[in-house]
């Protein structure tokens, strides 16, 4: 049975590192894995996703509507935008920190109210103020690895050597930060 994990957020939030680490963990766990990314124009502050599918044998690299087992949303509006790709009632791991888009920054539109409440009612929602937690750790950018920790717990990937994986992807100066961030997310 193929499982699908959709990462959704805004260009520059570090989605790629989270999905890369997840993919490495799934490979280490013996799964066939496919991962799909978006490059180019959308990366300039636009809505971006990466898609990870795993199982015994994976065919399509991309996730269809109502297909994702878990939606890891780095931003509430993006969680709403990609909700149609989640299995009805499926799991959302949500970073609650809001990033207003250009039409909101300019005052032309308002940031929509009530997204989190709606998701809590209609999905299996895990809300995390990962931004604040990451700032507490000393670096707002570690938000992506906190979310990854929470995802690892959700997928029961505790037997993976996460420390080694993290160390293979980040610079030594950031080992401790990311290891702490991962644990923080995992322990939620």
């Amino acid at each position: 049975m193929t499982k699908s994990i959709l990462f959704a957020g805004v260009g520059g939030q570090g989605i790629l590192l989270s999905s890369k680490l997840l993919t490495a963990a799934l490979i280490a766990s013996g799964y066939d894995v496919k991962m799909s990314e978006v490059h180019g124009m959308a990366q300039r502050g636009g809505s971006v996703t990466t898609q990870v599918r795993f199982g015994e044998k994976v065919h399509s690299p991309i996730i269809g509507k109502g297909d994702a087992d878990v939606l890891v949303a780095f931003e509430p509006m993006e969680a709403a935008r990609w909700l149609d790709h989640l299995k009805p009632g499926g799991r959302i791991i949500l970073n609650t920190g809001k990033i207003p888009s250009s039409v909101i920054l300019s005052g032309d539109k308002d940031y929509p109210e009530g997204i989190e409440e709606y998701l809590a009612e209609h999905t299996d929602l895990l809300s995390i103020d990962a931004q604040a937690m990451a700032v507490e750790l000393g670096n707002a950018k570690a938000m992506n690895v906190i979310l990854l920790g929470a995802l690892a717990k959700s997928l029961a990937l505790e037997d993976v050597d996460w420390t080694a994986l993290i160390r293979s992807e980040v610079r030594p100066a950031f080992y401790e930060l990311n290891e702490k961030a991962f644990q923080m997310g995992f322990d939620l």
Partner: peptide, 17 residues
């Protein structure tokens, strides 16, 4: 496919800039 959709008012555009 069967899927759920968020209310229209949540879907504010996020174009690249």
């Amino acid at each position: 496919p069967t899927y759920q959709q968020a209310p229209e008012e949540f879907l504010v555009a996020r174009p690249p800039i």
